[in-house]
Design a protein around this nucleic acid. Structure first.
Length: 561
RNA sequence: GCGCCCGUAGCUCAGUGGAUAGAGCACUGGCCUCCGGAGCCGGGAGCGUAGGUUCGAUUCCUAUCGGGCGUACCA
């Protein structure tokens, strides 16, 4: 199923190719190979609806100036029987095509017909993709970095789903390892303190208020029933109790942020099921694990790394890296074609050795993609705020949602390329949230609703899109608006293929901007019927596309604000 | 030292090798008694530096300067 934009481009390509072949046959051009015909929408409107650079590409093999080639090709292009209304040779040798407006009106009908489904494509071809994101330590509340990951991951999942990938969202629970031991020590200290004992708090413990609260509640509910256990037993029991609470809380917090997972995967389960040791055995057999200084090492140097990595410590405990190899191998065993991880920049050093691990396990490392998200800097009064779970000084995801709302926060986090640092200015987000671009987009949607609502109240019937004459939509803003909506499916496809969810935020702003311009330029109600009906349909189409975009962004599309 | 990411307007950022590099904020000049002014229209100002590849470079390569992150028997 091709989109209208694709159909038009295909027709242009066929016509251009035929013209080049004809020029070759008549001897006007001497070329051997037909290059891929590249069509682009010129940045400048005066350069036409589409342009091709084929003349520049042919210049070398034809041994002619690009402009000369462009003129020859243009001479062989048929003027009749196509959408082409005009063409010109311009700049260094572009051939610009000017099309009539007829095909644009088909776009509006296409949108009205498809509704919520407009924008969906099959470029993903049902590829099974797993996206793992956030995967925060359950030892503390979710922070800004997690929030960025949550927004980016969920929008990427939405966009890829819309583009025809089969997407599974997964959260990896780091419920094993050193930080859990420290967590247990922290819990124990807080529990005992809650019971009035004067015990010291561990140096490396988690100082967050959430740990104190959790243990005070437990102390109130259960009293000193944990007091009789010995310390290690007590810590274990407290960890079990606290982790369950923490995970439930994380699920709720993420849900409140518009993020729901398909799978919650426990690291601890990898250890207890023996998968970690199985993976290490398998690597040993392949000769990629060896023993040195009482520890076991993964031969990362065999995969281009600078040094080998410990997988089992000299105390017999496997490292996080060992579990991670087992975890990622398990992902592929579960049948995913592609596995995408979204990690903070502080984990980037982990990427290549992880890929090395996959290669050692016989998995093509290119099937493991890691999106590295640059860190979020929290700014208050123009100064950077340092955040640390251990010190307990932080703004949590919940704080953020309470202050600026889910919609604004999500939009803010997903607006930027993941390669860029994100300065999150608390004062701006809290006190001046009206300036957040999300309102601009949502307001456009509310306006579409307002017009349609007014029409309804004035008993103006919504015309059937099939029977309306749209040809009176000829103002520049109207045509621009339609062209922008035409791009929607390919915008989604590109965002999905390139794993760039921020494009959808950009698209939303562009579309909203064009609609606001249209709104100020053209009235809908009060115009004579032909114009009114055509514009009503246009507004209806804009509403659909805006809603679909906001849907991908996980942001509500309000009817009024 | 080595590795990864980033240097684009006063600030925060867009810009799959193309023609005259775009938004928002800030500053500033306008907008019909009208479908919602959280809007619209206009103005000034910019690709860190130096080479290279190319018909053509903000985009690719190299070097260099500046910022961030990593370089644990932490995760």
């Amino acid at each position: 199923m091709k989109t209208i934009g694709e159909k038009v481009q295909q027709q242009l390509r066929e016509v251009i190719e035929a013209a080049v072949m004809q020029a070759k046959e008549t001897g006007d051009l001497s070329i051997e190979n037909m290059p891929v015909i590249n069509l682009e929408v010129p940045r400048e409107k005066t350069h036409g609806d589409y342009a091709t650079n084929i003349a520049m590409l042919l210049s070398k093999q034809a041994r002619m100036a690009p402009r000369k080639i462009a003129e020859i090709i243009a001479d062989h292009l048929p003027a009749e029987g196509t959408l082409i209304e005009g063409m010109e040779v311009a700049g260094p040798g572009f051939i610009n095509f000017f099309l009539g407006n007829g095909w644009l009106y088909e776009v509006i009908q296409d949108i009205c017909q498809k509704g919520d489904d407009y924008g969906s494509t099959h470029v993903g071809a049902g590829e099974k993709v797993q996206i793992e994101f956030v995967s925060a330590n359950p030892t503390g509340p979710l922070h800004m970095g997690n929030a960025r990951g949550a927004a980016v991951g969920s929008v990427l999942a939405n966009v890829m789903q819309k583009a025809g990938y089969e997407v599974t969202k997964e959260f990896y629970i780091n419920d094993a390892g050193n930080q859990i031991i420290k967590f247990g020590q922290s819990l124990e200290a807080r529990y005992l303190q809650a019971l009035g004992q004067d015990v010291p708090f561990p140096e490396q413990g988690y100082k967050g208020q959430d740990v104190i609260d959790l243990m005070e509640i437990l102390a109130q509910q259960e009293g000193n029933s944990y007091l009789e256990m010995d310390s290690s037993q007590r810590q274990e029991a407290l960890i079990t109790y606290a982790l369950e609470k923490k995970i439930i809380a994380m699920k709720e917090d993420l849900h409140g942020f518009g993020v729901d997972y398909d799978v919650w995967f426990s690291e601890e389960a990898l250890h207890t099921s023996g998968k970690v040791m199985q993976t290490l055995d398998s690597l040993k057999k392949k000769g990629y694990v060896y023993e040195k200084e009482d520890a076991y090492w993964f031969k990362a140097t065999a995969f281009g790394e600078e040094k080998d990595e410990v997988v089992i410590r000299s105390n017999g405990v496997p490292t996080y890296f060992a579990a991670d190899i087992a975890y990622h191998y398990d992902k592929f065993e579960r049948g995913f074609d592609t596995v995408i991880n979204i990690w903070g920049a502080d984990h980037h050093g982990h990427v290549s050795r992880m890929k090395g691990g996959m290669k050692a396990m016989g998995v093509d490392p290119d099937r493991l993609e890691v999106i590295i998200m640059q860190l979020v800097r929290l700014v208050r009064d123009g100064e950077q705020v340092r955040m640390s779970k251990r010190s307990g000084e932080m703004i949590t995801l919940n704080d953020l949602v309470d202050e600026v709302g889910k919609d604004a926060a999500r939009f803010f986090f997903v607006m930027r390329n993941t390669d860029s640092h994100l300065d999150f200015d608390l004062e701006l987000a809290k006190s001046q949230s009206n300036e957040n671009p999300v309102y601009y987009v949502q307001y456009a949607h509310a306006r579409t609703h307002g017009i349609l609502q007014q029409a309804y109240q004035k008993e103006v019937c919504m015309p059937a899109f099939e029977s309306v004459d749209l040809s009176c939509l000829s103002a520049e803003v109207e045509l621009d608006l339609i062209k922008k909506m035409l791009e929607f499916p390919s915008e989604i496809a590109d965002a999905a293929k390139n794993r760039e969810p921020h494009r959808m935020a950009r698209y939303a702003q562009d579309l909203a901007g064009l609609f606001h311009s249209f709104y100020n330029n053209s009235r809908v109600l009060g115009e004579e019927q032909t114009i009114r009906d055509a514009r009503l349909i246009l507004v209806h189409a804009v509403q659909i596309v805006l809603r679909n975009t906001l849907d991908i962004l996980g942001i509500t599309a309000p009817e009024r604000m």
